[in-house]
């Protein structure tokens, strides 16, 4: 733990925290069920957004890439959680941090929802710059709200953003490896008129 993490977390949680409406909003934004499902919904929307068969085919491959990027991110997160057993802020600084979330039991580093959000945002960047920026902003907001709530340090969020942003590159390599299989799956889906 470093001074940067400690001071920023204490400032957000103790100095800003305690203001009723802000706490109320941050608890909502920190939820597992508000922002993370939006990442999955964005992927589904992208499947149909193309204006012609070629564009749609390209976007559907990017949707696949986003799904693989999520899977890769979760896999790397599981490995990192085993390697870096970093205490959560409410555990490391019990006298300074008021927990505004459930007491999570897994390690603090890295911030899982932020990593997944960045993986989707970067994977879908070729579809729409606006969509991608919106998703990245949402991933940062959920990370920020959890620092505010006392369950992440700022560097957990920053590390997760870097990790998530790198995963679409790995997913791209996997897609290239299984290119004909993926294309064939899309052709079959087209035969059923569902893609």
């Amino acid at each position: 733990m470093n001074a940067f993490d400690t001071e920023i977390t204490k400032w957000l949680n103790s100095d800003l925290g305690g203001f009723g409406p802000l706490d109320w909003m941050m608890k909502m934004l920190a939820s597992d069920y508000l922002v993370p499902p939006l990442f999955a919904l964005a992927i589904i929307g992208v499947i149909f957004i193309g204006r012609n068969p070629d564009e749609r085919f390209r976007y559907q491959r990017l949707a696949f890439k986003a799904v693989i990027a999520i899977a890769m991110t979760n896999w790397v997160l599981a490995i990192l959680n085993g390697q870096f057993d970093r205490d959560r802020p409410y555990v490391a600084l019990p006298d300074d941090i008021e927990l505004m979330f459930y007491p999570a039991t897994d390690p603090s580093f890295p911030a899982n929802p932020t990593a997944v959000g960045f993986a989707v945002a970067v994977a879908l960047f070729p579809v729409s710059r606006k969509l991608s920026i919106g998703l990245a902003a949402a991933a940062l907001v959920v990370g920020f709200s959890r620092v505010y709530a006392g369950v992440f340090f700022p560097t957990d969020v920053m590390g997760a953003a870097v990790l998530g942003a790198a995963m679409p590159w790995v997913a791209g390599g996997i897609i290239r490896l299984f290119d004909p299989v993926l294309n064939l799956a899309l052709r079959v889906a087209r035969a059923f008129a569902v893609a």
Partner: peptide, 11 residues
């Protein structure tokens, strides 16, 4: 979200 996506795609 499917309604939004399909409307953008003109489907």
């Amino acid at each position: 979200v499917v309604q939004i996506g399909a409307s953008h795609g003109g489907i």
